[in-house]
Design a protein around this nucleic acid. Structure first.
Lengths: 248, 248
DNA sequence: CGCCATGTTGATTTCTATCAAATTGAGTGG
DNA sequence: CCACTCAATTTGATAGAAATCAACATGGCG
């Protein structure tokens, strides 16, 4: 069921630590967005030698909470959901990783969340120990990692405000505005369409709502001519409405 | 009103960057908990020379969101609330800083939250630029900062689960259990009392509830003989109940 | 074509917020 | 020492937003 195509850490690890698919960091389209932007050509080539490409099928699991973190990942294509689950089945999605996002900032041995592929995903994988050794010797990279971590922390705080203090309507509006900004950044140009590759349940679990409420609010927004629902996402009709309702 | 004793960054900054009150890092009681635990005696003495003590009165503001971050702080005594506010007055407290906690992990110029003294607070203050230069040269310290940042990130994710998916009762139980653990760590030994120096409104703004709900739930717990309310905090009566209801 | 996952819509309940009023309690000044 | 004040907290009554329960619709895919 959920296990089709699962590619968990311990098994995945065997094939990594060396160059697998031969992609070239110099031509990496998301490098400017990633931790790798801190590196000069020599460093990049070194990093390339210790990296391997990884692909994950839609609905497969990159790794699970509590698993030992043998690898770290730079997402290069697709969307990953980061999930924390309670024993009774309640879920909170703490974030969606898009191309350019890095998984493995934490220095602890085990993952603190489960990562699942929302779409087919491609990632640049590094053996954790090698990557750590390298960053230990390259203050550039360590600093960049730290920048990423503190930026994530700031985003996490934004999300706490959203979860703790916004109404359902405000949550949805904020989410859509954020997704629009993130996709624009990734794609390098604004698209009329706001891609929503994740399902309604994922959106609900990200916003601390139920799937019914997410569906109702989005469809009400459509009836109110604030947006239109299209295949794979939505399109803003009244962008002002959204800017006004999303938290800065 | 809220401005009595305010000690904002720009003004505070004038008196810092050198040793002010003469406390000795070697005898710092919270060093083992702080970023400073990464340092050897020489480094500690260097850091001491560039540090200054700062004191903030109860209810005063250490710094405000958007202010330029001239200094970074190591809290040595008291409790600080970290606040994000919406334009319409809604507040979300993203965390409480206790002794040993560090404010200024982010590398960005401006603060991403407001910090207010819940009690009288003492802190070890460093000029931001000096501290950054120092950490740039000391991978030890940079790594330690990064560890702190990623640990905070993990705590932030815990808090997202709390805000998004727990009931009022579970939120309060989790909060109390966490405060118990944190105070035990700070004080080095377990105390029967769980100190709650922050008011009910602060607890509400931390848990995404209203003050009335916080009051009601805590008082109901007292009626149910799960805890007793005492001056400055609460005392667990049925510790099992709390362990069972708090998220791992 | 029909199946099953996903999403939508409707009816109702429930939890928590809101509105409103007492109560407590620390600090102040007579 | 005690009355007074003001803020913080508690308690009660009611409202409301979102959850829950329950069908029903859609749509991609074998």
């Amino acid at each position: 069921m959920d296990n089709s195509g699962v590619f968990t850490e311990p098994h995945a690890h065997g094939a990594c630590g060396h160059h697998v698919l031969g992609d070239d960091c110099r031509f990496c389209s998301i490098r400017r967005l990633s931790v790798c932007s801190a590196l000069d050509p020599d460093e990049l080539s070194f990093l390339e030698d210790m990296s391997g490409d990884a692909a994950f099928e839609e609905k497969s699991t990159l790794f699970r909470q509590e698993d030992e973190a043998f690898s770290v990942y730079n997402i290069t294509a697709g969307v990953v959901r980061l999930v924390r689950s309670l024993s009774d089945g309640r879920r909170q999605i703490t974030g969606f990783a898009l191309p350019g996002d890095f998984l493995g900032l934490a220095l602890e041995k085990s993952w603190k969340f489960t990562a699942e592929a929302v779409t087919d995903v491609k990632a640049c994988r590094f053996k954790r120990s090698t990557f750590d050794d390298f960053s230990e010797k390259k203050p550039h990279l360590m600093r960049r990692m730290h920048e990423f971590a503190t930026h994530e922390l700031s985003l996490a705080q934004d999300h706490m405000v959203l979860l703790g203090r916004l109404t359902a309507e405000e949550k949805i509006a904020s989410f859509l505005v954020t997704m629009k900004r993130r996709w624009t950044r990734v794609e390098g140009h604004e698209l009329g369409l706001i891609r929503l590759p994740m399902g309604r349940q994922d959106i609900a679990d990200y916003l601390g709502l139920t799937i019914e409420t997410v569906s109702r609010v989005i469809n009400q927004m459509q009836r109110d001519r604030k947006l239109v629902i299209v295949p794979d996402g939505i399109r803003f009709v009244d962008a002002d409405y959204f800017e006004h309702r999303a938290l800065a």
